[in-house]
């Protein structure tokens, strides 16, 4: 079975860990995030074309920039999920910067941008124009909700598919 390392990238408190918690049965305690700065879980997914892929999820502690430790943790990653909090516009900008930094570190790798906390529609701050602009650039964006499980499985599955295409 193919294994792929993926990283969860995003600003502090955008919901990375909640997405992972929604997605997998956790092997390690969340304490790792605050101590080592990363928590690892695994999940078996089926790509959209039917291949089994074991994802090794590296949930890297949130920050608006890449720390030295985070840079080390990124090494060897086959793709990443770029997560923003749809109710906080500044996390969009952070995500763009993080994406740039990650690309500089890893080279061009498949990624999906997750607009998390989609259930909080009344607090939503991300303008649809911004989203459309990125979609036109060829980015894949999904509105997700760790609370309701909206698009969570689909996001990981889609990323697995994208990584297998490379």
């Amino acid at each position: 079975m193919i294994q792929k390392k993926i990283c969860m990238i995003g600003d502090f408190s955008v919901g990375k860990t909640s997405l992972v918690a929604r997605f997998v049965r956790q092997s390690f305690s969340d304490k790792y995030l605050t101590t080592v700065g990363v928590k690892i879980d695994t999940k078996l997914v089926k790509s959209t074309d039917g291949h089994d892929v074991k994802l090794i999820l590296w949930d890297i502690a949130g920050n608006d920039t890449l720390t030295t430790a985070a840079t080390s943790y990124l090494r060897g990653s086959a793709g990443f999920l770029l997560i923003i909090d749809g109710t906080r516009l500044p996390t969009w900008e952070s995500a763009l910067n993080l994406r740039e930094a990650v690309t500089k570190q890893l080279g061009e790798k498949p990624f999906i941008m997750l607009l998390n906390k989609a259930d909080l529609t009344e607090q939503w701050e991300i303008d649809q124009e911004l989203i459309d602009e990125k979609v036109q650039e060829g980015w894949i964006l999904l509105k997700t909700s760790a609370k309701t499980g909206l698009n969570v499985e689909e996001a990981f599955s889609e990323l697995a598919t994208q990584m297998l295409k490379v």
């Binding site: 080592v36 060897g76 086959a78």
Partner: peptide
């Protein structure tokens, strides 16, 4: 580089967890 588990062997009767996650965590640590 990636911390992915290439191969894993163990003694019989030894309780093993998610070796892939353990492998990655080894690398992270």
């Amino acid at each position: 580089e990636s911390g992915l588990l290439i191969q894993h062997v163990h003694q019989k009767g030894v309780e093993i967890g998610d070796s892939d996650a353990v492998s990655a965590m080894f690398t992270a640590i």
